[in-house]
Simulated assay, not measured.
Amino acid sequence: MYLPLVFTNKGTTTCTLTGYPGVSLVDSAGSPIGDPATRRGTTRPTVSLPPGGSASTSLHTLNEGTTDTPCRRTARWIRVYPPDSFDAMKVSARSFRVCGGVFEVEAMRSGTDG
């Protein structure tokens, strides 16, 4: 299962994103659920975002029941640190749940396709 995460430049100047964001799952109290996502694939070129421009990444896990490894408990939030940032953002985890012991994040890429 893949889940795209889209980053949009809300500023007034161009910014850049290089590499991988930091991603973890948290419960409603803000406590982490399991280890953060590991990096998947190769690093892509730096993405330049003009004001209003977007870049994306994808989270990857396995579908429930694919392996004998159980799913983690359901998260309330996905906590995301943009590449090279110490400031996290939170987005609703909705129905995303880590299963099969696989929780991976891909490098940033241009566009919103994840």
Rank of each mutant, 00 (worst) to 15 (best):
T8V: 12
N9Q: 08
N9A: 02
N9I: 02
K10V: 14
G11C: 05
G11Y: 01
G11R: 04
T12H: 05
T13Y: 05
T13M: 12
T13E: 14
T13P: 01
T13K: 15
T14P: 02
C15P: 05
T16Y: 04
T16S: 12
T16N: 08
T18K: 13
G19Y: 01
Y20S: 03
P21D: 13
P21K: 13
G22N: 09
S24L: 10
L25N: 02
V26W: 02
V26H: 06
S28N: 09
A29F: 04
A29S: 08
S31D: 03
S31Y: 01
P32Q: 03
I33R: 00
G34D: 02
D35H: 05
D35I: 00
P36W: 00
P36Y: 00
A37S: 00
T38H: 06
T38D: 11
R40M: 07
G41L: 09
G41Q: 06
T42W: 13
R44C: 04
R44A: 13
P45A: 07
V47T: 00
V47L: 03
V47I: 07
V47W: 00
S48K: 13
S48M: 01
L49R: 04
P51I: 09
G52Q: 11
S54H: 06
A55V: 01
S56R: 10
S56M: 11
T57Y: 07
H60R: 15
H60M: 14
T61I: 12
L62H: 15
N63A: 15
T66A: 15
T66V: 15
T66Y: 14
T66W: 12
T67Y: 09
D68R: 15
D68W: 14
T69K: 13
P70D: 14
P70V: 15
C71W: 07
C71T: 06
C71H: 07
R72W: 14
R72H: 08
R73H: 10
R73V: 13
T74V: 11
T74H: 11
A75D: 06
R76M: 12
W77K: 06
W77D: 14
I78K: 00
I78R: 01
R79H: 03
R79C: 05
V80L: 09
Y81W: 13
P82N: 10
P82A: 08
P83I: 04
D84I: 00
D84L: 06
D84V: 01
F86M: 05
F86R: 06
F86N: 08
D87Y: 04
A88T: 03
A88D: 06
A88Y: 08
M89I: 07
M89T: 10
K90L: 10
K90Y: 09
V91D: 06
A93I: 01
A93M: 04
R94L: 14
S95T: 10
S95E: 11
F96T: 01
R97G: 12
C99K: 05
C99P: 07
G100E: 07
G100F: 03
V102Y: 09
V102K: 11
F103D: 02
F103Y: 11
